[in-house]
Simulated scan of single mutants.
Amino acid sequence: MNGQSSLQENVLNQTIFGDVLLLGFHSLSRYRFVLFVSFLVIYTFILSGNLLIIFVTLSNKLLHSPMFFFLCNLSLSEIFFTTNIIPKMLQIFLKNGVTVSLYGCFTQLSFFGIFLITESFLLTVMSYDRFLAICKPLYYSSTMHFSFCCYLSLACWILPFLIMSTSLGFLLKLDFCRRINVIDHFFCDFVPILGLSCSDTSTVRLVVYLLSPASTIFPFLFIIVTYVCIIRAILTIQSVTGKKKAFSTCSSHLSVVCTYYITLFMVYLVPSSGHSLQLNKVLSLLYTVMTPLLNPFIYSLNNREIKSAMALSFKNQKSLKVLVLYNK
C-alpha cells in the first residue's frame, strides 16, 4: 500500500482533473525491466506470427478458401487487439505506472470491446464454415461463396462498433469527480472504470449486461451447437482415416475457441469477489496476451495446409535467392 500511495503522490502534482492512473503490476515494480523485455518479446511474436499467417494465406492460392479468409480476419483482429493493450502496458512497466486522460481511457476501453467482440463473431463464423463443410458438404460451395464471406466478415467488424457505441454513449454520461482516478489494472477495463464514477452506474451496467449475451454468450452457444452437429457427423464416418481428416479440419479452431472463452468467462462471469485483483489481472493477461500469442502457433502447427504453404513459401524464397545469386 505504501508503494501505491507514494506512486499516487508522485503523479498527483502532474495530473489534471479527470486523469486516470494505471498502476499495472505495481507490486512487481522491482522486476519491471524483466517484465518489459518479456512482454516486448511476446508482442513481437504476436505481430510476426499473425502477419506471417496473413502473408502466407494471401500469397498462396491453395489457401484462398473461406476458412483461411476468416483466419486472416482473425489474425488481423488479434493484431489490433494486442496493439491496443500491450504498448501501454510496456509504458506502465517502464514508468512504474502511467497516467492517461479520462477520454483516452474510454478510447482504449472502446477498442478493447470492439476487437474482443469482433474475435467472438469471427470464431462463430468460422464454426459455421466448419459446420457446412462437414455436415452439409453438398451445399458448401454454393453457400460459402466469396460475396457471402465478405458480408459475414463485414458484419463481424461493423456490429461490434455499433454495440460499443451504444455502451460508450451511456458511459460518457457518467460523472467523474476526482482529480485523479486510480485503476489497479494494466488497461482501462469496464468494471474498474465504473468504480471511479461518482454518479449512479446502474443504467450503464444494465445496458452492458443486456448487450453482453449478443456479443459473447449467444455466439458461444452457437459454436457449441455447431460442434455437437460436427462431432455427430464425424462419428458417422466409417473409415478411421476419414474421421481423422474431418476432425483435423476443425481441431485448430476448436482449440482457439476453448482458450478464448474459458479465460474470458473466468474473468467476467465469475463474481469479482471470487478472486483477488492480482488473480484478475493474471486471468486478463491470459486472453489479452497469451491467447493471441498461442493462436498463430495453434493454427500453424495443427493445420496441414498452413504448414505446407509455409514450407512452399520458404522454398520459393530460397530458390529465388539462388536464382538472383546465379544471375549475378
Rank of each mutant, 00 (worst) to 15 (best):
S6T: 12
I217V: 12
V41E: 05
F106A: 07
R178P: 00
K61L: 03
P66W: 03
L12T: 07
C149Q: 05
F80G: 09
K136Q: 14
S202C: 02
E9F: 09
S251H: 07
D175F: 04
G242E: 01
I117W: 01
F36S: 00
L71D: 01
T291V: 15
D189S: 10
I298M: 03
I306A: 05
R205A: 08
F39N: 12
C150R: 11
S153P: 07
Y139H: 12
I16C: 11
I234P: 10
D189M: 04
F68A: 00
V98R: 03
S273R: 13
H26C: 00
M89I: 10
A311I: 00
P219E: 09
L221D: 06
I230R: 04
L12Y: 15
S300R: 05
F68I: 00
Y299K: 01
T99K: 14
R178K: 15
E305F: 00
V98T: 13
G169D: 10
N181M: 11
L90V: 04
L325I: 09
L47G: 08
I42Q: 05
S27R: 15
F297D: 03
S6F: 12
L21P: 06
Q278F: 15
F218E: 05
S77I: 14
V256D: 08
I262M: 04
S319R: 09
S252K: 01
S284T: 13
N316L: 08
Y140M: 05
R205G: 02
P137W: 01
Y261R: 05
C177L: 08
V289Y: 05
F220Y: 15
I223L: 10
A133F: 12
L171Y: 15
M266E: 06
S27L: 13
S251E: 07
S252G: 11
G195H: 09
S300H: 00
K281P: 04
N60F: 01
L294F: 04
I92Q: 06
Y128I: 04
S272I: 11
C149M: 04
M1I: 12
V34K: 14
V267M: 02
F17R: 14
R304N: 06
K88E: 15
T226M: 06
L325M: 13
I231Q: 07
N13Y: 14
L51F: 14
Q8I: 14
L132V: 03
L94N: 06
H26M: 09
S202K: 08
N280E: 11
L63R: 00
M290G: 01
F297Q: 02
M1Y: 13
S77N: 10
C156E: 00
C258R: 10
T203F: 15
L74M: 06
S5G: 00
I224R: 03
P292M: 09
D175K: 09
V324W: 11
M164H: 07
I231E: 06
C135Y: 03
N316W: 00
L254H: 03
F68W: 04
L159T: 13
H185L: 02
C177V: 01
M266W: 04
P219G: 09
P192N: 07
G274N: 06
Y299L: 03
L122Y: 11
S75A: 14
S313C: 07
V20I: 14
L171A: 15
K244D: 07
Q14R: 15
S142P: 02
F297S: 08
F176C: 05
K136E: 12
L62G: 02
F70G: 00
